[in-house]
Structure formats: C-alpha cells, structure tokens
Design a protein around this nucleic acid. Sequence first.
DNA 1: AATGAATGAGTCTTCATTCAT
DNA 2: GATGAATGAAGACTCATTCAT
Lengths: 199, 199, 199, 199
Amino acid sequence: MREIVRERLITAAARQFAEAGIEQARIDDISTDAGFAKGTVYNYFASKEELFGAVVEEAAQRAVSRFAGVDPGGGDVRARLVALAQADVSVLRDNESFTKVLVREAMSFRPTTYPVIELHLAPFVLQIAGILTDAVTAGQVRDDLPPPQMALMFVGILSLLYVQHWGSNGDWPALDDIPELAVTAFFDGAATRRKEGES
Amino acid sequence: MREIVRERLITAAARQFAEAGIEQARIDDISTDAGFAKGTVYNYFASKEELFGAVVEEAAQRAVSRFAGVDPGGGDVRARLVALAQADVSVLRDNESFTKVLVREAMSFRPTTYPVIELHLAPFVLQIAGILTDAVTAGQVRDDLPPPQMALMFVGILSLLYVQHWGSNGDWPALDDIPELAVTAFFDGAATRRKEGES
Amino acid sequence: MREIVRERLITAAARQFAEAGIEQARIDDISTDAGFAKGTVYNYFASKEELFGAVVEEAAQRAVSRFAGVDPGGGDVRARLVALAQADVSVLRDNESFTKVLVREAMSFRPTTYPVIELHLAPFVLQIAGILTDAVTAGQVRDDLPPPQMALMFVGILSLLYVQHWGSNGDWPALDDIPELAVTAFFDGAATRRKEGES
Amino acid sequence: MREIVRERLITAAARQFAEAGIEQARIDDISTDAGFAKGTVYNYFASKEELFGAVVEEAAQRAVSRFAGVDPGGGDVRARLVALAQADVSVLRDNESFTKVLVREAMSFRPTTYPVIELHLAPFVLQIAGILTDAVTAGQVRDDLPPPQMALMFVGILSLLYVQHWGSNGDWPALDDIPELAVTAFFDGAATRRKEGES
DNA sequence: AATGAATGAGTCTTCATTCAT
DNA sequence: GATGAATGAAGACTCATTCAT
C-alpha cells in the first residue's frame, strides 16, 4: 500500500522533474500530478531533495533492470551491443521522464547526484566493459583503450543520441534508429574502412 | 568602460552559473563576485534570465572565435579535426566556466537556451561539416551518413569527454588527451581495423 | 472558512490602502494587520494588484448593497434622494476605509481601477438616474440635462462632501449633515429661490 | 539661468506625476523628460518629495495667478462666477498636468500635501467667498449657508467636472461647457425653478 | 553645473516545509 | 494517512540617492 503511493509519487515527480528541472518543479504540482494534496509528499519523503534522489535512484534502477538476460552472448560484439542498446531504448520508451532526468543530471555533474548515478549505472557499464573485454580478446576491438572507458564512451554516445532526439523534437535521430546508430558510431567510427579480413 | 564592467559581470556570472546552475546562482553573489554591489547587475542586464542569455551567447562566441584560421586545410581529415579539437580545448582552458554552462545547457535542451546555443554553434558545426564533406569526396569518410549529422556527433563526443573530465575531477580523460581521443573515437571507432590502403 | 479569512484580508487591506495609498501600503502590514504572516495573502490573492482590485470591488459592492429597499419611492424627489444619501452615509460609517479607497481611486482616474469603479457603481448611478427621470416627468427636475449625467453629479457632490469631511478632520461637514447638504446642493443650488408654485 | 532649469524640471515633473502618480513617477523619467540626466534633479531638489512639493506649489500658484483682474464685478453673481470658471478652464488648458496633480492630491487628503493646497488655494476660495457674500447681501444667494463653505463647494464642483472630463477621455463634459455647467450646477441646482422675479 | 555609474535599502513574490484537523 | 492553510526564509528586482568625474 505504502509502496504503491510512494511509487505514484516518484513517477509523478519524474514527470515534473523531466519537464521543469529540479529547481523549477514544484512539490505542489508533483503531489497534484500524483493525485494527492500537497502535504502528502512529506509523509513519504523528508524533502524535495530526497524525493529527487529517489527519482534518480529509481531511474538508474529501471535502466539497469532490463539488461539482465538481454545479452545474447556469442562471438559478435556488434550484435551484443545492439541488443543492449535496443533494451535501453525500450526502457526509455516506457520511462522517458526518468531517462531525461538521468541524462540531464549526468551531464550536470552535480556533486549530490553524480555519485548516485555513477553508482547505479556501474552494473550497466561493467556489463558493457565485460562484452568489450571479450571482444578485445577475440581481436574484434582495439586493445589500446581500457574497456571500462570505452564502455563509458558507448553509454555516452547513446545518451548523446537521446539528447539530439529530444533536442530536435524527435526529428533526428528517430528512436528506432538509435541502437544501430550508436553502435555504428561507437564501433565503426566515421572513417571509411575495410573490415578486418576483407581483401 | 561600460563594456569592461559588462564583461566583468558576465565573467563572474559564468563562474556562478557553472558552479551552481542557473537556478541556484544568486544575483547577489554574481555582483559581489564581480566586485560590485548587488544592484549593479541591473544597470547592465534587465533580469537574471537576460544575464544568463548573455553568458550563453558569450560562451558560444568565445567557443567559435578561435577556430578562425585554425583549420590547417590539406587532405588529412584526422589532422584537421585534431586541430579544431585542440583549438576547442585551448578555448576551454581559458573559459572553463563558460564551457561548462554551455555544455550543461546544451544537454538540458531547455527551450529558452537551446535555440541560442544552436544558433551560435552553427558556424562551428558547419565548419566541421565542410571538412567532412571534403573528406567524403576524398573517400576518407563514409558516405552513408549526412555530414551535418556526423559533425553534430563529433561536437557531441567532444562535449562528452569534457563531461567525463569534469565528472571525474580531471581524472580521466586529461584535457591534453581529449583532442586525440575525440578524433579517435569519432573517426576510428572501437573496432580493430586495418586502415584503408594497408596491405 | 476560506471566505472568512479572505474577508479579513480584504478588510485589513482596505484599512492599509486607505491610510497609505496603494503604493505605500505594504503587503506585510496588511497580512499582519489581518493577523497572519506575510505569505498568507498570497494564498488568497495572486498579487498586490489583485488584492487591491478585490478591495475596490468589495467597496463598490458594499456601497451598492444597502440601497436595495431604501428608496421610499413616492412623488418627492428630495425625500428619495435624501434617503439614498442617508443609506450611503450609513454605509460609510461602517466602511470608512473602503469608501476612502473608492473615492480616492475614483478621483485618480487610474486606467486600471476607473473601469472597475464605474462598472460597480453603475447600479447606484442608474437608480438615481431613474429617480431623476421620474422627477423630470413629474416636472420637479429640469429637463435640459440628461438624468444619467445629473446622477453622476449627485454622486460626485456626495463624494465631495466626504472629501471635505475627511480633509477637515471631521470639522465640516459633519457626517450627519451630509445627506441633507448634498441634496440641497444638488437639488436647490446656491441661488435664492422661490419654489415652483410659491406665489 | 538656475531658475529656468528649475522651471523645466518642475514642468517635466508635473507631466510625469500627472501621468503616473507620485509613487510611480520615476526621477529618471522626469530628468530625461526635462532634457537632463538623472543626477541633475538633485542639484535643484533635495528629494523626490521636495520636487513633488514644488510641483504642487507651482500648480496652486498657477491656478490662482490668472484670476487677478478677471472678475467683471457688477451685480450679477452668475456672470462673475462664469468669468472665474472660464479663467480657471483657460488656465487648465495650458497646465493640464499641474491641474491633474492638484485635483488628485486634493482628493487624496494626504497630510503632507493637503495643507499646501489649502494654503495656496485660499486666495481663490476667498475671492469666490467675497463674490458670494456680495450676492447674499444683494439677495441673490441663499443666506443659510456660510459663503466660505459655498465657495468650497463651487471649487469642488468645478474639480468634479474636470475629473469627469478626464475620466471619460474628454467625452463629457467638454472643456468648453464646464464653466457654464459648473455655475448652473452650483447656482441653480437640479430642481425646476422659476427665477426670482419671474412672474 | 551636469553626468550617469554605483549603491543598497526596501518590497514583492515564491514555495518548501510544518502541522492542526 | 491525507489534507491544505499558514508560515517565513530566501531572493529577484526597483529606484531614490550619492558622488567621482
């Protein structure tokens, strides 16, 4: 019961925070949006700051939760990364507000939220780093950059495409194109190339 | 005279906005930081919002100004992009606050500032798009993605590295490494490769 | 409940506005005067301006409300006008602040308030105009001036006497004398006269 | 020299005070309107309040100055009053701002300005009272009201018509009609009448 | 004497937070 | 547990006034 109300508040908060930013969002609107009166928020969260923390935490958890079991494994890095990116985009579709909050906060490196985000995103990044390590071993990925940092870059590029998607009002890139695009940008780069093994 | 004071105010504002964000920054502090009493800001800017606009504008202009004459031209895309990225980093060194504000705002896609940023960054993006078009013609760059969007990606990757630099408190990547890193990430990608023409 | 507080705030506001004028009156004082903390006003009115509007509106309504049923009708204009003026004075006794605000504003022809006053005073003026029209028909009142404008004059003269009452600190005219005085001034004028029908 | 600048400032101040009221009028605008920079006002007046006082004083003086020699004398009160009212209206034409300030202040019974106005208007009121006293003696004016108070009423009615003129944007009454109208209202009243001496 | 940049006291207004019901 | 009225700290903004030039 208590948990359900809490959830409703967090979801409403995510919406408001995504639309207005943390400063501009008003507790009143959040409560109303969730179907309660102003004061109710304070029966569940000690402060606006704490509510925001809960939103970020939930956002990070949601983002991570769906990756479990998504990785097809196997030898093809590209395919594995695309699968992850697709999972991420599908999460985004159901949680656009949460993701917006997450990305905006990540890019704002606010001392209070950055560590939270890092902490919760760690599993995701590690999973990617794992895939990359496999791929380095298999000779599919360059070995002159540490996998964890390449993983960060991959997550970053994904976020970047989200930002451009939102910034262009959905004009470009379309959500559907993002997974492939992200992997292409991350993996292949802009240069013309002859794939390994091509004659 | 008037211009100098204005400049001082904008610089102080950039500092405060970079540190605290637009909402948290207090007009009082900005004026004090610039060495004036609180009312002085309002002799130069009609409102906090306008001051912020001036900071963004200045940030965008500074970012662009240094690219003039930086492009070495010639046939090597990589070298040209590295030169531009180096110029950008050197601008950043002198204007860290401005760039922070710029990047944070760009990533927050706020309706009021996003267009301003787009407008002022356009020349920079176009310059890169030009280089990429040359490179496409020369067969150095893939022709399946439109140059303007690749240019956006390049700028995005650069910004991403700044964010990671700031987010890690300068840990990784170091400023000095960013130009090379950005070009590598953008141009080469993560895949192992044999450069065009290698046997 | 909510209505009571609103009323208390309006009453306090009327006091402060009457004493200090709209510019000089401070929201703080109004709230305190009403027995609340300063912020409370804003739970009921969006701005000082709106609160002022509410005061003017209430003032006009109070002024009008008591005229209902006051007019004795019958053939004697003088008596009917005196009855109305007496009602007006009795309203004034209970609402001195409101009336002061009303009169001051009416005489200041401020674009924002003048229409409000006109609108709300219209019924009163119309009632008087009606009485005068009757009287014109009955041959008691001159027919060379339009009744609505004569009605305005009557209201004006009444207000004028209030102003002189306040301006002289109650010295002259006394409130009790005002109804008779107003009707005399308006109806009879200063000239010596022989009433119609006197030999 | 000094006197001329002072005069220009007072005239500009009158304009601004008339348009915006004493609180809303800004020193800056007054100075600019007079053709000077902001600071100049303070070389002539110690404060805004003092400047306002000077405007009121000047307004009162201008209002009075033109009555000298205007009174045609003779036996007809009506004619003498009309002459005075005409003089007043003609003064008003050249000094609309000053008169507006004066009337508004008179109706606002502000402790600081009311005495000033009374003081300066006294000669005018006395002159009218004199005429009325003559008329009482001649049996043309009722003897049951003290002439000074009747004089006040006359001035009041005149002001009232100005207010209605301004409040209706010049619609009614027209300036030209005011002298006759004022005397009619004051002298004859609204009642049908047979003038003294009519058969 | 004129200027206009700088000052800072004074207010309105917002809104997170408290708490009695 | 929900409510929403009351609170009051905080901060943007105005503008009369000062004063160095």
